[in-house]
Amino acid sequence: MKSRVIVSTTINGEPTEFLCEPRQSLLEVLRDVLGLTGAKEGCNNGNCGACNVLMDGVLVNSCLVLGVEAESHRIETVEGLAVNGKLHPLQQKFLEHAALQCGICTPGFLLSAKALLDHNPDPSEAEVRHWLAGNLCRCTGYDKIVRAVLDAADSA
């Protein structure tokens, strides 16, 4: 039985090919095969959001996607947020609002927040909280994260 397959995909705008076993999740592929360790494993069953990435612009848990499913799809990770050396407004606002402490959940929050602002550029606090409820943060109590996202929306 052939254990590995070639997958052609686009990651952060770059056409990318990789070899993976069908049992490897997209998260494993990103981290272990492609060296993109920005996506984090916090639970590996879709309950913490630390591994969130965008797949064709849709927010997904990369631990709940098989690497082979990325074939012909577009993946965006935290590594692709800053463009030409300039931080994405969300990244900048997370820093300014002290919206991270340990930082492990930050990449996942940034992707969730980006998906939100792409979908709804002017969210209310309630909408931000709803959209981020699939991302766990144990350090901040969410206050400063929510403020950072609202501020990023305002300044966009």
């Binding site: 879709g46 959001g49 969130n52 797949m55 849709v58 927010l59 997904v60 848990n61 709940l64 996607v65 969730s112 998906a115 939100l116 709803h130 959209w131 409820a133 699939g134 991302n135």
Partner: peptide, 9 residues
């Protein structure tokens, strides 16, 4: 069902 990212799949 789940959070936004679960609903994406």
């Amino acid at each position: 069902i789940g959070g936004i990212q679960i609903q994406g799949r």
